[in-house]
Write a protein that binds this DNA or RNA. Structure first.
Lengths: 187, 187
DNA sequence: CAAAGCATGTAAATAGTTACATGATTTA
DNA sequence: TAAATCATGTAACTATTTACATGCTTTG
């Protein structure tokens, strides 16, 4: 019932101009999803939550027969957001990657199968880099030109992260190609 | 009811010698938790699941009055694990980091507050590096000497990742110190 | 104008965390 | 020997995903 990280993501996007659940979803998909996933049902239920708490105010604005609600921050909502942004409690970074997990247990596998996984990791990093370079960064640069600078900074974090991962995968791929079983870690 | 990633983590640790839920927890805390979190209740319920499915076999081995169950892989369990390890479906890397989220929305904050967050990110990376260097890597090297090479490889991934993050934080810290508001992304 | 995709959600199922309980073992 | 910590779990709560429903808009 209380507020959680998701609440502040929703408040944050409302603050910079999103009005509907769908607009929040679009904005999140193009930016924050790389370090915080948020699915549509979470957004919509969070909006209801926040309205009950008086942090957003919604009004009905149907498109024809289709129901539709637009929201805006209240003064209390803006304040709650800024207070949260100021807080500096311990914050845990969490990574979940089934691919690394498979690699962790890969000693149970014949060497031939393992190289394939590493190649898949490399390709995944390449795909992500494309997404960043074609979609995420250009959009963040626009935002930057509009006077909001931190979306570009955090997007560059994502971009740099995947560049690092690509490099790591390539190095491991090379080492495995040289000496299939006794690989030795890259570094 | 079906098997999920957690199932295979449990099978994987049983395969390399863990016998109880607690031993699995200990092993996971010292290795896979950096790319796959798994809490005690998940482990215990997963063990029951796997037993029903015939992939592990458990027997009671109480310590005094305290109940206690030890498990081992069945042949079917070993096979299920290896089949999963071989599979190469699409695998999504997921990151969740409230600190990056705060940084993303930091344009709503006075510049003074922001530097503190970046410093906290740097210190977090430093702490993680210590954990890797003092605990995780030494243990993985032991495992490596015992003929299992992939735990060291994946642990090196974690180590390298946090080294990269430390570098990124330090660079951003410097740029913010120079020009507080108009920061420009590190890269 | 039919099909595909965009926009707007909800219900039900699954996954995961928190808080607790309890006995054994170690340590101050 | 009391307090702390290790070991072994469970119940209840919270968070998240999946699958669906439905009307509007664009496009072949």
């Amino acid at each position: 019932m209380g507020l959680c990280v998701n609440s502040y993501v929703v408040l944050g996007f409302l603050r910079v101009g999103a009005r509907s659940g769908y607009e929040i979803k679009r904005a999140a998909d193009a930016s924050t999803r790389f370090f915080w996933v948020l699915s549509p049902p979470q957004i919509y239920s969070e909006l209801n939550n926040l309205e009950e708490a008086g942090l957003v105010k919604g009004h009905s604005e149907p498109r024809g027969e289709r129901a539709r609600r637009l929201f805006e921050l209240t003064a209390a909502g803006e304040e709650a957001l800024v207070e949260w942004l100021k807080e500096s409690g311990p914050m845990n970074l969490e990574v979940r990657d089934p691919a690394l997990l498979k690699l962790f247990f890969a000693d149970a596998l014949p060497p031939g199968e393992i190289l394939g996984h590493v190649q898949a990791m490399r390709r995944r990093a390449e795909r992500m880099l494309e997404v960043f370079e074609q979609d995420i960064l250009p959009l963040a640069e626009q935002t930057d030109a509009n006077g909001m600078h931190y979306p570009l900074i955090t997007s560059s974090f994502g971009h740099g992260l995947y560049k690092w991962m690509l490099q790591w995968s390539v190095e491991l791929e090379r080492k495995l190609a040289d000496t299939p079983v006794r690989a030795g870690a890259p570094e």
